[in-house]
Design a binder for these strands. Structure first.
Lengths: 148, 148
DNA sequence: CTTTACTAGTTCGATATTGCACTATATAGA
DNA sequence: TCTATATAGTGCAATATCGAACTAGTAAAG
């Protein structure tokens, strides 16, 4: 019987799962009580790529089910970090906008996380980081396409 | 005001989060109803690294809280895929063992996932894959050390 | 126009996850 | 030995997650 050693790709999934756990814990330890990583991620997403997006676009960006995104957005709206407006062209939809409080909160949180994260990061060569990012992007795109 | 573009490391976390979602969905779609990725991952872990480990060792390997692991192990034991025995040297602890059914199930599930996954994977150069894995391992170790 | 198929978003219910508190045992120090 | 402290595992309660069904609106086809 041959050695049952799985493909290195499975090792990759393994590492990804673990880093996901660790980074989630790291971020959430630096967010106010009840704020979760998805909240922060969405604020970040809207800051970087621009607000005015629809919930479903955001859900697709993170590859989470749309009802999960509803839940996350409710949390952000309750905290006053986003507001929603009707979609100008599609009555079923709506658009998501950052509030001033949302922008400020995101900037502070980002600064806090960066400050704590930077000193503990290993020295990663820019080349290697680029290679890794590129590979993960390709992998993500493939998995995305395969979603039936 | 400077451009608020985050470090590429944050892009990395982003990709990791998305791949985590996608791969979780991919695996769970190919497992029996109610079986989740953590169940499969633990079977895999025990197969590859050997059984007879304690729950807390397994929890640490995946960086999940120990009560989460309790829950996962209950699921596996209920399905007859693992069994536990008292720890020979530590009365507080116990050891986790694969059953024959567990080994078989894991082999079949792995075959199924591999069969469906292989054709959709992008052509990844071994070099790039190695580089990425190495980088992620370093990152994981750093994050692990930083856990206070 | 009207019918039909599709899509955005929410609600609901089932289940997973995890923090906290607790028990039992182990270990270290006086 | 006795005491204090730390660790393994579980139970419980709070909450996150997500599939399925639903509502409302859109698009496409005749």
């Amino acid at each position: 019987m041959p050695d049952e050693r799985p493909d290195p790709v499975f090792d990759l999934f393994n590492e990804i799962g673990i880093i996901n756990q660790l980074s989630r814990a790291f971020f959430e330890a630096r967010l106010p009580k009840g704020m979760l990583l998805p909240h922060f991620s969405v604020l970040n997403h809207l800051t970087r790529l621009g607000d005015g997006r629809t919930p479903i676009e955001i859900a697709r960006a993170f590859q989470v089910p749309k009802n999960s995104m509803t839940h996350t957005l409710v949390g952000l709206e309750t905290r006053g970090f986003i507001e929603t407006r009707p979609h100008p062209k599609d009555g079923r939809s709506k658009t998501v906008w950052l509030t001033e409080a949302g922008r400020e909160f995101r900037a502070e949180a980002m600064a806090r996380v960066t400050r704590d994260m930077t000193p503990i990061l290993p020295a990663m060569e820019a080349d290697a980081l680029g290679t890794a990012l590129e590979l993960l992007r390709e992998l993500r795109v493939s998995l995305d396409k395969a979603r039936d």
